[in-house]
Design a protein around this nucleic acid. Sequence first.
DNA 1: TAGATTGTTAATCGATTAACAATC
DNA 2: TAGATTGTTAATCGATTAACAATC
Lengths: 214, 214
Amino acid sequence: MNAEGRPPLRHGHLERLMHYYHFITEHIASSDNDTVSSAQLAELLNMDDTQVRKDFAAIGVRGRARVGYRASEVVKAIREVLGFHERREAVLIGAGRLGGALAAYRGFRQYGLAISALVDADPGRAGEVIGELEVQPLDRLEALIAAKGLRIGVLTVPAEAAQDLADRLVMAGVRAIWNFAPTALAVPEYVIVRHEHISVGFAELAYYLKQSGR
Amino acid sequence: MNAEGRPPLRHGHLERLMHYYHFITEHIASSDNDTVSSAQLAELLNMDDTQVRKDFAAIGVRGRARVGYRASEVVKAIREVLGFHERREAVLIGAGRLGGALAAYRGFRQYGLAISALVDADPGRAGEVIGELEVQPLDRLEALIAAKGLRIGVLTVPAEAAQDLADRLVMAGVRAIWNFAPTALAVPEYVIVRHEHISVGFAELAYYLKQSGR
DNA sequence: TAGATTGTTAATCGATTAACAATC
DNA sequence: TAGATTGTTAATCGATTAACAATC
């Protein structure tokens, strides 16, 4: 149970909530009286309508029979449950192409993520500006984390460098790591790691392509 | 059933296979007689050992009682099933930071992915070299796909541009799209889309962080 | 041989889907 | 009122885990 007295959401559930959120914010105008039915969403997202109703019930959204759910209410509840309104500052390590792309992407703001420090191991990169941030030298990592009280680290570094940097992040107080390096990280159990394994996406795509007869 | 007479693998199964693959190739030297037991893998990957044995059985890998599985055999079987040895050429659209990162990443090769054409809507970018490729103007898209017989497209463009480009890809003969644009794509049912929704990863990380008491 | 580990069947668990009464 | 849609319970399905005989 969490603060709201609801059981914690599982992976699949969170994914579906994000799915609803994107679909509704993209396709259904947010004027106050816009409604959406579970059957509509289910059809468009290619899933079962009971699932939609259960998911909404689980986050405390109630609909009205013969009418459906208020789109704005659904969106608000999802933002609430997932904590999109809570600003979460993070330090990003590795200002290469991928790191630069994440640092410059403005879309993260709607989920509460603000990358508020950017470091790179190459001293030559220090001072360069990406998005709204200046690249800092790696040896300032701990100072930056302490100064801003950062608790989230984003790793966009080569595989070989990842474990060392993860260790430094944890030592400096970081408690959640978003890992884009193609390697597993060993961390204490009180640290949460989300490993973004991009090539898995390609492997799946290729497998399905193969299954479908090339 | 697929060509090998085995039922197709589901999402979870594919993810686990990639997990084993990475773990074994990273942590277990590939000399011919290296063995690994289901209990070992299960412990290290934090899962049930029966699961490991079932997954291996499903791809035709047999172990030996009291010994375990031959690491090299497991790796080979996974590569075989997932088609890593089949070279798959793709066109990448959008040579921005993210596109550039993917185009320059050499690690994809081990999975069979070769990005063999790179286009960008900005004519000013044409001619620029990223990795081993020269950025081509967008109007050459169809010609490149036809000339190289490409069947896979990678979209690293802003959300607004994604649907139009997906349409062009499909019209030109592409049958699988790896979509990094933060928007859903509408495509004919014979086209496979893999939507890489990166912010979902952050949302999950943030949710678990919140659940754990900040 | 003794005992560790596989391979597989059976049991459990959770997630998905079906059914349907309640409601608007 | 009639009928569409929710909310929820029950049934089904599939995935995970337990158990254990077979094997090396």
